[in-house]
Nucleic acid binder design. Sequence first.
DNA 1: AACGTTCGGGCGAACGTTCGCATGCATATA
DNA 2: TATATGCATGCGAACGTTCGCCCGAACGTT
Lengths: 360, 360
Amino acid sequence: MRTFARTFASIIVRNMARQHATLKDVAISAGVSYQTVSKVINHQVQVTKETEQRIWQAVETLNYRPNHTARALRSQRSFTLGYSWPPSPKDQTNPILDQFLQSIFEAAEERGYYLLCFPYNSDPKKHLEAYGELIDTGRVDGFILSSVEYQDPRVLFLLEHKFPLAAFGRSDPELVFPWIDVDGAAGIAMVMEHLLELGHERIAALAWPENSRVGNNRMEGYFNTLMAAGIKPVSGWVKRGEGKFSVGYDATLQLLDLPKAKRPTAMIALNDALAIGAMQAARDRKVAIGSQLAIASFDDTPMVQYLDPPLTSVRQPVWEVGQRIIPMLLDYIETGRLPEPTSVLVRPQLIVRGSTGRQI
Amino acid sequence: MRTFARTFASIIVRNMARQHATLKDVAISAGVSYQTVSKVINHQVQVTKETEQRIWQAVETLNYRPNHTARALRSQRSFTLGYSWPPSPKDQTNPILDQFLQSIFEAAEERGYYLLCFPYNSDPKKHLEAYGELIDTGRVDGFILSSVEYQDPRVLFLLEHKFPLAAFGRSDPELVFPWIDVDGAAGIAMVMEHLLELGHERIAALAWPENSRVGNNRMEGYFNTLMAAGIKPVSGWVKRGEGKFSVGYDATLQLLDLPKAKRPTAMIALNDALAIGAMQAARDRKVAIGSQLAIASFDDTPMVQYLDPPLTSVRQPVWEVGQRIIPMLLDYIETGRLPEPTSVLVRPQLIVRGSTGRQI
DNA sequence: AACGTTCGGGCGAACGTTCGCATGCATATA
DNA sequence: TATATGCATGCGAACGTTCGCCCGAACGTT
């Protein structure tokens, strides 16, 4: 037996007697039928200047606002977008969450939409149920997704149900849906070229596990740049693991404990936490960051500018992503056709700081 | 002339022919009237075991889900809560946002509610309009507020409109509304007692401007503890400014450049960014953090555990705040009476690390 | 035998919109 | 003068629920 109404039934409905003006009130005040008022408000029909004038006048004096729920019921559209994202682990902060949210809220509001946010259930099956419920109860017109992976169950589910979505991040190339992504390969390539220019040729990498879509994309920038420079990658110099401090710390200790001839002079990290771990390892081994070991990373968490030395990092154009993903989704919802272009790749920006100071 | 429907009129309504089962479908399938189905689903009426059985069976096979919009229209309740928060400045990350959001999303979902998030408009007048619109269009049943200040316009507005709210943070004592807050005074007092135990008696403070409600509350913990220990506060040792790196850095340099006899041996900061600035200043003046100068702060941003040395800081019980604020608001909405207790103060937790290491 | 009570369930209405079509009137056309 | 065209507006219905009231049958009580 389902229980979707378990709380509903027991609610004591409050009567605040808060009366809003309705279409009918406006109609009476303006001396027309309420359907005409509706049409004027929605700019659907031509009326005489005077009638229109009277109607808007009445709207103004009665302080009329169309009831969203009634409008949604009749038009079968909720003007609401669903969004849920994986929470960041306790020992880390999501560096782009706030900005991304503010950006999509603003872009959505501009077109008359709001965002409905719901918890991220770590059990994929239950998480998909949440999407199903929002769809079936008609609460949302589409979804924003982020942290998309290969064969992402959410993407597959929504495609299967032919329900509109737009994602921050790619999935498998053969899955066609609106997405926008930061060109991670280009970002790391910028870092690599920066290091090459500084004279580094022995560059290690702190990477993520091989099943990470985002990680693999960023690492393309590493391998491609090395290849283009005619440098053969050293297999032991690519360390993989979770993107957290301890992984970066341990991996870097291993690298620094290599015999001098086999030691890298620079390293890139796929995110800031790894790089911060690397910096601590360097300090513990009395290796001067910047001059003896250059370190650079990805994300540009605001506070890395205050590390000692400040960390060179790649900054994602988060605000832009938010501003662009919303129109993609809304165009899809409102026209029923995939937006053109269906997918967008934006370039990140390299922020050079002291951690990649000139080599001695 | 208002334009609330400017986008609405021009929308090409898509016909995805996505058919959901309705009450009537279930009723036909179960051989009863659709109103009876409604009552069974909402547990409002007694029916025979067999009838109920047939109805739930039909619900199951047709995969029926009550249409949220219709339910909201009829019952005049949206089962949605509004939330908007001030975006963090570009050079800082909001350390508790993600956890707080996940917590309130989860707590709300548990009682059948979702959160509608909308952008924070820095112009207070326009920002209040957003609240007004959500109220007037019936999109939300109540609001969550955070970063509440003295004479907070949002609080005043909602109280005036008698619209339900619950806040993370206090406002003026004479304003009665549901709120939950972290006891900042207690948090700083814990830090102060920790420093006193270590033998420090010369303790400076990096504080916020005097019009900050949260800041003043935290500083109570500073002054009260000093007074209780019989230590007279030194006026020049309380530095005030925005809670950012550069302020902490500059203020600390000033303190460290005092003649040795007038110099503090420890300092507290009202947030992590200030403390990180202080640490950098200490490094630049070759002052050993922990032994020569103890530094402690408030917030416990995840990454401060990775600073060198790791930073002693006060951690807010963010998850708990989220779990408790939602029931406060929902009880208020559903019963129409202020929740009991109307306001709650929770204690933060002191996390001791190397930055307050033993004094030499 | 007449009467109240309880139980199971039905019925019409309402929530506030939008939609499709009809209608009346004035103007232009045959 | 009769007929087509356009314009401004009205009308009934529908979206999918919940709500309040009614009704008939079964049961027990006087």
